[in-house]
């Protein structure tokens, strides 16, 4: 059984059908890049998997647990799947360390001392152990995003969803974040990432999903998708002119 099963998922915003029946199965340890033009439904799909958007049709299950729109099921799902956002969304009134500790203490009721140990460990893991007491606005964009990754990891999720996590960063800061993601991938973390970093997708991902107009247009290993695009839409997206 797959870790994440996305079956015939449909999502509508008013009259606009953004997802028109998506099917993807993700195996444990897979790293999947979702690429496509803006408006193709990539981010919406990711947000559906985390329950930030409700789906209109189809089903999503994570590690055998069905996604249902009530608070109890959503919470159970979110404990399994972490999410990282384009805009970092750190809590600005808390230090980096507190950002990583908060949800452990509030959601999992972890004692403070234990949460602190975990927070230190996770910040260490993203190379920011020395920034425990820094506030988000004292950190660079790349550092903030790494804290956000540490915050998600502290909840010990079995998969991470990354929604264009390097798009808001200055070019020289992109690599430090991607290095952390690469590290996670090599440790066997299941990752689903919407990304515009084609080089990264080619180097690190096990499969690439090309979305077009609310559908999975092409899917396959990166060497195949990038070197040998089958549809004209993907060719155009990749800028391949034959």
């Amino acid at each position: 059984m797959s870790l994440i099963e996305i079956t015939e998922v449909k999502k509508r915003f008013g009259d606009n059908e953004v997802l028109k029946g998506i099917n993807i199965d993700v195996e444990p340890g897979e790293v999947i890049a979702i690429i496509g033009k803006s408006g193709s439904g990539k981010s919406t799909l990711l947000r559906c998997i985390n329950g930030l958007e409700t789906i209109d049709d189809g089903s999503i299950s994570v590690a055998g647990a069905q996604l249902l729109p009530d608070e109890l099921h959503l919470k159970a799902l979110r404990l399994k799947v972490g999410m990282i956002f384009q805009g970092f969304n750190l809590f600005p009134h808390l230090t980096a360390g507190r950002n990583v500790m908060l949800s452990q203490m509030v959601v999992k009721k972890t004692p403070k001392a234990e949460a602190e140990v975990m927070a230190k460990k996770m910040l260490e893991r993203v190379g920011l152990g020395h920034k425990f007491d820094a506030y988000p606005d004292q950190l660079s964009g790349g550092q903030q995003q790494r804290v956000a990754i540490a915050r998600a990891l502290a909840m010990q999720p079995i998969a991470l969803l990354c929604d264009e996590i390097t798009s808001a960063l200055d070019p020289e800061l992109v690599n430090e974040v991607l290095a952390v993601v690469k590290e996670l991938a090599s440790e066997g973390m299941t990752l689903l990432m919407v990304t515009h970093e084609m080089r990264f997708a080619r180097d690190v991902c096990s499969r690439v999903v090309f979305m077009h107009q609310g559908r999975v247009h092409e899917i396959g290993p990166p060497e195949e998708v990038f070197a040998n695009p089958k549809t004209p839409e993907l060719k155009q997206f990749l800028g391949v002119t034959h």
Binding site: K75, G82, L102, K108
Partner: peptide
Amino acid sequence: GQWEASSSLGMGYLQQMRWVILPQ
């Protein structure tokens, strides 16, 4: 984004209010 981030970490409505939204 503060609501979304705290949701994605598994917090319920009152927890989000208490720890994330109201302090700000």
